[in-house]
């Protein structure tokens, strides 16, 4: 009881202290230094209509490369910690017919929608991370509906590796063509799609990178699900 009271008091003090800090940050006022620059230049500099994806992939693409790496580490870490020589799914109850048939029917629709999200990252809200997560949901659905379902992990692992290398390679191509790592060579050197801003074939390398990220995130999250659902078999 005493512990709990002390904890509550401590949290209240910290909360008050944080609120003091927050109260002095001007809210709703024009404090957009860099933000304004992004909004004013996003269309002609990157070709993206969606300012968020332009910032995330183009202006601050370095951070996104880092975030992709963080996800990669998470899946690798889970893989390393749950590693056993032989592992198998040990689910016991089979799903009902409605569930299995429904999942089978839904699977392609979810996949299609996931791809739609990451391909249209430069035009509509979303992008590689939500798109990839949607695709992983499709695989999760299959895992939940069928007791024996398994993704082909070898292929998934290799795809994941190639997708990651693809991202870095696009960046290195930028270094070779434009002189800077992660430079948008499609838009700024080749000027591809500069005349149709707002259509599918525009946005420089943003759709390409988002496709790579979508594939990577999709395979990675599916891999984590696969790793966590399987148990060791004793021989």
């Amino acid at each position: 009881m005493l512990k709990r009271i002390l904890a509550i008091i401590a949290i209240l003090i910290i909360g008050y202290w944080l609120a003091q800090g927050l109260a002095n940050v001007p809210f709703g006022q024009d404090k957009m230094l860099v933000g304004k620059y992004y909004l004013e230049h996003v269309k002609d500099q990157t070709g993206a209509v969606n300012a968020v994806t332009a910032v995330v992939v183009n202006y601050r693409g370095f951070d996104t490369l880092g975030e992709v790496t963080v996800l990669f580490i998470a899946s690798t870490g889970v893989g390393a910690l749950l590693w056993r020589k032989k592992r198998k799914r040990t689910a016991k109850t089979e799903g009902s017919v409605v569930l299995t048939t429904g999942s089978k029917l839904l699977f392609p629709f979810i996949m299609l929608f996931g791809m739609y999200i990451f391909i249209h990252g430069h035009l509509t809200p979303g992008g590689g991370f939500p798109g990839g997560a949607t695709i992983a949901t499709a695989f999760l659905l299959m895992y939940m509906a069928f007791t024996i379902y398994e993704i082909p992990h070898k292929e998934f692992e290799v795809t994941e590796g190639f997708a990651g290398m693809g991202y870095v390679l696009v960046g290195l191509l930028g270094l070779a063509i434009g002189g800077y790592f992660l430079f948008d060579w499609i838009w700024q050197t080749w000027h591809l799609g500069t005349s149709n801003i707002g259509r599918l074939f525009s946005g420089g390398f943003i759709p390409i990178i988002y496709t790579i990220i979508g594939i990577k995130v999709g395979t990675e999250l599916s891999g984590i699900i696969d790793n966590m659902l399987k148990e060791e078999v004793k021989e």
Binding site: L65, T69, G161, F162, G164, M165, V168, L169, L172
Partner: peptide, 8 residues
């Protein structure tokens, strides 16, 4: 980065 992605 690229070497770590190549390991798989």
């Amino acid at each position: 980065l690229i070497s770590a992605f190549f390991v798989p």
